[in-house]
Structures are given as C-alpha cells and as structure tokens.
Design a protein around this nucleic acid. Structure first.
Lengths: 209, 209
DNA sequence: TGACTCATACCGACCAGTTGGTATGTTGAC
DNA sequence: GTCAACATACCAACTGGTCGGTATGAGTCA
C-alpha cells in the first residue's frame, strides 16, 4: 500500500509472492501439474525472478512447505479459543475452529503440504522431509494442550498426547480428501464431528449442548 | 500363465496390464508426474497399445479408478472376518483387516483414487467423479454391515451408517498421508487404532483384549 | 556533492529434453 | 478380406532451467 519501504525493510516482495502463489496454485492443481511459469504468472513476477530466489522448482516446494508452517502458527495464538483456561477446552476449541474453516471452495481450506506429500513422498525426499516437518510442528504444538488436558483429566483409554494430535491431523487430512471427492466441504465436517465426539468420549466430557 | 485363452475369453492382456501398471506407478509418483511412456514401460506394452485401448491419459485415469473399485471388492468377501455372524464383529474385523494391511512399503498400501483425487479434483471433473464413485462404493458397502450393527446395538451417540463408513474412509485416507510424511506405516496404524477405539466406545463394546 | 563500485533484484529471450497424442504400418484370427 | 490388437516413427507444445542483460540503492572516497 505505502510506496516506500519502512527503512531497511526485509527483502519483501517477489519471494513472498511466489510462495503465496505456490500455496494457491498447487492446492488446486497439485505440485507436478503446476508449472513454474504458472506460479510466476499467479505471483505476477518474471521467470528470472523465480530462479533468482529459488535454485529449482523443488527448492520452491521446500521453501513453500516451511512458509506453510508459518501460516499455520496463528491458529494457535490468534482466535478466542486459544485463551481459554482449561486445556481440554482449548483442544476442543481448536477442533471447532478447524471445523469452522471447512466451508467455501475446497481448494481454499485444504492442506498445501498434504497435497505435496501425495505426489512427492517417493520422488523427492527433501520435499517429503519439509512436509513432514510442517505436519510434525503442527502436531507437536497441538500436543502441548492435549498433554495438559491429560495431566488434569482421566481418559477412558490410555492415549498419548502426540498420538492423539497425530490422529487429529490424520482425520483432517482424510476429511480434505473426502471433500475433494465430492467437491463439497460437508462430508469433511461430518468426519471432524466424529473426531470431536471421540475426544469428548475419551475425556468423559458430556456433549456440550 | 496358460498360453491359450479359455475360448472366447475377455479382451485380456494389454488393457489390464496398463491398468495395473497405472495403479502401481501413480501411487508412487502421482498422476501428473507419471507419463504415458512410463506406464507403458511398466506394463511392458507399446505406446500404440496404450492409445488403442484408451483415448487419452485422462481416459486411462478414469478406467483405472473403476478398476480400483473391482480390486477392492474382495476385501468384503474373501477374508475370514467377512463370514462372522455379528455385523459389528464384521465391521471391527474389517478395520482390523485394514490395520493389518498397513505394513511394508508405503506405496504398496496407499489408495490409488485418493492419490489421484488430490491432484485432479479441480482440473478434471471426469476423474474426480470416477474417484468419488470408487470411494462411495466402498463406503456404501461398508455401511451395510454398520447399518445391521446399528439395528442390533445401541450407540452412545446418534450416528448414521453411511456417516460412520465415510469417517472410516477418511481416517484411512488421512492415515495414508501421515504414513507418507514419515515414510513409515506405524503412524498410520496408530490412527486406525484410535478409529477402532472410537467405534468400540460408540457401540459400548469393551475393548476385546 | 557527486563520481565510482558493487551487490541484489529482477527481466525475458532462449534452449534442450520431455510430454501427450497421431499417423502409418504389421500381424494374426475368423 | 476385415477387423481388432498391437508396434514404430514422428510431431507440436510445453517443461524446467540458463544466460546476458538492466535497474536500483547502499557504501565509499575525494
């Protein structure tokens, strides 16, 4: 918006625009089907700029996976539910939050790293590792609240915080695929509702309302 | 194995070989990253044969999705658990069966149509529809046993047979992605174990050992 | 102040290899 | 002969990536 940089500003611009464009385009078309030219066009930058910032298409994929982690971080800090005193409330609130995200065009709420994993896990280990790091960071962050809940509450069955966080992530990823199959978010919401029911049962919490 | 066809046999050969090859290669590399030449090489047939049987790469994708449904059908007929008298036992037995499949190289147990969906849901509606049909057929078949279980047993919460079948499918699809992230099936088994626990709790069945 | 240097950011024409798809056969069963 | 089932050679379009170039701004020294 403002025309001049705020004095010795960070690199800005083209790099970030390319990363954002990759998130958008790859989530719609997949990684392999997305050409470098397409990402450049979506970002509004030239091919020269692309290869100035990234050594290769694969390098962009890796950087975009890292950036995806940064984009996800606010989920754990921003909204109201993150401020709740009870860790189980925070966990359930997070799931409600993810549930609420499941609307509008499917490509807008699906997971960039999940999409890239499907195509690249066997063909590019650096990309696989970068995607794993992003997913693992999410799970580990989520596991903090879960562990605090486990410290306070009994569960009907023995579970680990990380295991439950990973299961949560798995249900979300699976829900995305089901939504893609129908091109409709509703089926995804159903699955997340089952997940919430499971967690409430595990923690012996009566269905709220 | 036998050299001569069993008298006016079905088309055999090249078409099926191409379909099988597509299942193998696409599950490893994804749809877009897999070239027609590669599928031909994996199937051991020429490119001419490919375009004799399929009008386009997209047409192969659609046919392979349909074939995938056929490949999955034996899961509901073949193994011992399908013969159990109690429908809930059959349902839980099916989940155990899927659990047991989660070992060895990741690409060997992941879902062909799930992989194709990730890339093609927004770029090829015919492929999306074919994949949806395959997944829906699975869910509807699974829902038969679940409905019979619901007819006999009470559940702690109201659920629908199809909804629970879809959730089962979602957990499996999500588990595949998690396994791809780590390149290790164990994390997928954990998620399926959570799913089983959820179903047992829903149906008030004490954990069987 | 202004001339000189230098690095970073970016541009767009170009290239070799690959892609999906086609055109033109050949073969063998009926 | 006819027709399905293949095979081979080929092509235009596109792919990731390269390369020579320019624009701009910070640092430096007289």
């Amino acid at each position: 918006m403002n025309s001049s940089r705020p004095l010795s500003a960070p690199p800005i611009s083209a790099r970030i625009k390319l990363l954002d464009a990759a998130h958008q385009v790859v989530r719609r078309k997949g990684y392999a089907a997305t050409s470098v030219d397409e990402i450049c066009a979506a970002a509004g930058v030239s091919k020269g700029a692309f290869f100035h910032h990234f050594a290769s298409k694969e390098a962009l994929g890796i950087a975009a996976a890292e950036q995806w982690t940064n984009r996800a971080a606010p989920m754990f800090e921003f909204p109201p539910h993150t401020k709740l005193a009870d860790p189980l409330d925070r966990f359930l609130g997070h799931i409600d939050f993810r549930f609420a995200m499941l609307e509008g065009p499917v490509a807008d709420f699906t997971c960039f790293v999940g999409t890239m994993l499907q195509e690249s896990f066997a063909t590019s280990d650096p990309i696989r590792v970068a995607c794993d790091a992003s997913i693992s960071a999410y799970c580990e962050r989520l596991a903090i609240d879960i562990q605090q809940a486990l410290d306070i509450y009994e569960t009907t069955h023995p579970v680990t915080a990380l295991g439950l966080a990973r299961h949560t992530q798995a249900v979300l990823q699976g829900a995305f695929i089901m939504a893609k199959a129908k091109d409709d978010p509703e089926i995804a919401r159903d699955s997340v509702a089952h997940l919430k029911q499971y967690i409430e049962m595990l923690f012996k919490r009566g269905a709220t309302k």
